[in-house]
Design a protein around this nucleic acid. Structure first.
Lengths: 221, 221
DNA sequence: CAAAATGTTGAACATGAGTTCAAACGACGA
DNA sequence: TCGTCGTTTGAACTCATGTTCAACATTTTG
């Protein structure tokens, strides 16, 4: 065991797994890579966790426990890249956020759990902001929070692609970031749909065509 | 070889791969599973495509070619579940849309290509809708399209989770779907942020806190 | 201190997956 | 009919991976 490390061997293996999986995802991670990362022989992984699945379960449980413990973490792992400033102040949390990001891609209980926590938090914050007169109050606040979280997850998962199309290499580069935030805030401040009849139609009759991203039928021109 | 199938063997292997990968993803797909799906022995896969990577490249190229060929496909594979009606009318396209969905999770050139095409189409449709007076005209239409596509991708990737949190099992169930569409249209018709100072601040000084999903600092209460 | 329990090591094993290959098959032209 | 070339077949090979295990080391317990 290395000198300055008061973690137990099992904890070091778990941390190594979270870190490596955060970079490559579970499907591309082998027991030997995790063992090497932790500086232990392969056999120890199964001694402490029974199997690779056991290790995954332990990692999932631990990450979920961290989510419950540290309220800031769920913000730091959240969709808006600006939240990385929180992670910058708490670098020890970065592996967890990356692990969560991997889970959001491949699904599973961590993804579900994180999504749900994110929805709760978003709903509460929207309610607060509505109390303060900054946010609008939705007819269905919970559904609004769910959709907002899904949108944010999309922005987060495709952060690199967004940055590239916006002319940068990293969404946190100043120019790229400003362009992104400017449009995002504009998006949430001024309505995309200026023809109220779409919403009215939903309240009166059954589902009409809903104009939204990537699809629009010019019926009312 | 089965009787009524005028596809070449290579085409049948490719189609089998697209179909199987669409269900399970490349990481969880083996050459033997693809061969079994296509009803051919394993050796034929590498005879026709050189390697598993070669097959993947062929699948990617083919899917991208389909995207260029069939304009409706990019709508059918798009984020809004309502678009599945298009796929219902063209069931032969469903495997492609599911293949694309898998690629959106794991990244790669198909994901990038699809995202870009989606942005182009969204930008054009937003321009059309703006001409028709239905959509607002953005200061930065391209960035708006990029962000809208990312949002839509999030809604698409987390469709099952959204449905579950909205009380259903499938986003296309009438009740769940109505709740989803109602909130989505409301989202795009009425602004979330009703305090214009956030947007104003962006236009005058450097980046202020941007209130959005999952994060809000009560500064202006 | 002795013994037992716990932790650690590295090699060996079994399985599964990608790949290779020699032989068989079938269509087509000489 | 024969030979050739492009396919097809199924087995064998190689390597990586998850797992097991017997031996060794360390810590805890009586």
């Amino acid at each position: 065991m290395s000198s300055n490390d008061d973690r137990t061997t099992a904890a070091r293996i778990r941390d190594a797994a979270v870190g490596y999986v955060g970079e490559h995802g579970w499907d591309r991670t082998t027991s030997r890579q995790i063992a090497a990362e932790a500086g232990v022989p392969v056999g120890l992984v199964n001694y402490h966790f029974g199997s690779k699945d056991g290790l995954r379960q332990a990692c999932d449980d631990w990450v979920i426990a961290q989510l419950a413990e540290d309220k800031g973490l769920i913000l730091g792992a959240g969709p808006l890249p600006r939240m990385d400033t929180y992670i910058d102040d708490h670098p020890e949390l970065r592996p967890i956020t990356e692990y969560i990001a991997q889970c959001m891609r491949s699904g599973g209980q961590v993804a579900e759990h994180f999504f749900e926590r994110m929805v709760e938090l978003t709903r509460d914050m929207m309610a607060l902001a509505a109390d303060g007169g900054t946010f609008r109050r939705y007819d269905d606040p919970y559904a609004a929070a769910v959709i907002l979280v899904a949108y944010g997850a999309g922005a987060s998962l495709f952060g690199d692609t967004i940055a590239r199309l916006l002319g940068g290499t990293n969404l946190l580069d100043t120019d790229t970031y400003n362009r992104y935030v400017r449009t995002t805030v504009e998006d949430y401040t001024h309505p995309l749909i200026i023809d109220e009849r779409y919403l009215d139609a939903l309240d009166t009759q059954d589902v009409p065509p809903a104009p939204a991203e990537g699809d629009f039928r010019k019926e009312n021109q």
